[in-house]
């Protein structure tokens, strides 16, 4: 089970809406499974149908997490026109089996929907998610 505090959840929603209609992406850092910080990241693809972190920015944040003793708890991205469920591309490019894949649908921007998944060897498992 993953519980995301309100303030970090709001940062995700704000980042998602700011990047709309392009997909937004980010990294959730945690300690012992508890989220501590959300990093809003640049989508190098600047696209409504795909995302890719800037490798330089990714390395910088990974190094920072190492220094702070944080783990990569979650990988966040938005779907701007489809449901909050990993796409075929998400499965193909899921290289982080230890992270929660956090997918937020903004197909109704008034009511963002966030869901959490594990993706291991192309297999999706939904995980329980609480906000607050």
């Amino acid at each position: 089970m993953l519980r995301i505090p309100d303030d970090l959840y709001r940062e995700m929603v704000e980042h998602g809406l700011r990047e709309f209609p392009n997909e937004a992406c980010g990294l959730l850092a945690g300690r012992d499974g508890v989220p501590v910080r959300f990093f809003a990241m640049r989508n190098l693809d600047a696209s409504p149908v795909s995302y890719r972190l800037d490798p330089k920015e990714q390395l910088r944040v990974f190094d920072l997490m190492d220094e702070e003793g944080w783990d990569l708890l979650g990988i966040f991205h938005t779907h701007t026109h489809s449901e909050a469920y990993p796409s075929e591309t998400d499965l193909r490019l899921a290289f982080y089996p230890d992270a929660y894949y956090l997918v937020m649908s903004l197909s109704d921007r008034e009511r963002p929907e966030l869901r959490a998944f594990r993706i291991v060897d192309g297999e999706v498992t939904e995980e329980e998610l609480e906000i607050g």
């Binding site: 693809d45 995302y51 972190l53 490798p55 990714q58 990974f62 990988i75 998400d90 290289f95 982080y96």
Partner: peptide, 10 residues
């Protein structure tokens, strides 16, 4: 040498 998979998807 650090090997770091991309964080990407659709």
């Amino acid at each position: 040498v650090s090997i770091l998979p991309a964080v990407a998807g659709g």
